[in-house]
Nucleic acid binder design. Structure first.
Lengths: 201, 201
DNA sequence: TAGCTGTTGTACTGATCGGTACAGTGGGCC
DNA sequence: GGCCCACTGTACCGATCAGTACAACAGCTA
């Protein structure tokens, strides 16, 4: 953890409140579009709290990235227990349900950040790491399928997982900007078909 | 055109200089991270020029979006003359060459913007429109293939084009954040394979 | 009770933000 | 030449930016 930890329950609660407010605002307005003052106004905390728990705004963003990953994975629990082709369908179904529940295609918090963070030497690696963590659950599931003999022995789970992630991200980006979930539906469908093309016959 | 046009060659040059500087800075630092002052400092123009040609910063961003689309399409000229499966390979080859020439995977300007612009009621539709323009060239090419009898008559060129775009965007996003072009290579490969699966046998 | 540490409120700083005011200057057209 | 209007330079505005200073507080231990 790069950021200052809270050492009492009260401090932990305050810190969480700040991160939550920042995560919500930065999701909508971006990092540069979200001032520290706005975060504190939204969280009800004072400036001294913020700078007690975070060295600067950048470290707050680091905490926000972690928060985003937690939120994302929490919305697709099936990714933790992938062990069959049916599980993969369940997983993509959960991805789509997020947007159906929201009433419209919503953006991926990490995807939003990825564009803005760009080549920031501190933050870009953290976004990269979050994506890799996300992807690693997919890769682990594919390895289980492979161990179960459902995925071809010569298939590369890491590479397949990366391919699936590109479909997810591309689908999310277009579905959101164009307010049309079919972009994500088709992308996931194509990805699943591609994965299945490496199934044992 | 939403923005004020320049009516003399000198004015046109000044306006272009401002948009170029803004496009470059916003590509790196994002919209909110790029102040009008920085744009003017980089372009050598004064504030009165900026507000002579643009009502406000938002209108400058509109011009930047158009500029991005021009740059993007200019880097993949094959997209304008698609009429065979080989042409599609040429096109994806040009997409990859952009990054090979740059020495590393670079981000898509529109993709960067898409995340930050998010749900901005003025700018998001413009990004959407830019994507659709980009995609329309792809769709037109697929229709040519269809007319030539190389693409199945029951295939949906619009839907296939959208699927290809999601692959491109997802591949670009991951390739950039992870500094690994294979993400884009694989995404394009999968996309082409998918398109070919709708070829006439 | 005293004292310590983690926590909090408020006031402030210098820099920068987007945008405006206004007095000019340039070059083309009659 | 003289006019006109697009164009330009500079100074300025109130608001907001990230970050700091510092005194006061809360709760636990001794």
């Amino acid at each position: 953890m790069e950021t200052q930890a809270a050492s009492t329950p009260r401090g932990k609660r305050t810190r969480d409140t700040i991160v939550d407010a920042a995560a919500g605002l930065m999701y909508v307005d971006g990092v540069a579009g979200t001032s520290v003052d706005k975060v504190l106004a939204a969280s009800g905390a004072g400036k001294s709290q913020m700078y007690h728990y975070f060295k600067n705004k950048e470290q707050l963003v680091e905490a926000v990235i972690d928060r985003y990953l937690e939120q994302i994975l929490g919305n697709q629990p099936a990714i933790f227990t992938l062990s069959s082709w049916a599980d993969l369908e369940t997983w993509t179904g959960q991805l789509l349900d997020i947007h159906r529940r929201a009433g419209k295609p919503v953006a991926c918090p990490l995807g939003n950040l990825a564009g803005e963070v760009g080549d920031n030497p501190k933050l870009a690696p953290l976004v990269d790491r979050a994506y890799r963590t996300w992807e690693s659950h997919l890769e682990r599931g594919l390895k289980v399928l492979q161990a179960n003999g459902e995925l071809a022995p010569d298939a590369d789970p890491a590479r397949l997982a990366q391919a699936a992630m590109t479909s997810v991200q591309g689908g999310l980006l277009l579905a959101h900007i164009r307010h049309d979930l079919t972009a994500l539906e088709d992308a996931l469908d194509i990805a699943l078909t591609y994965l299945r093309s490496h199934a044992t016959s």
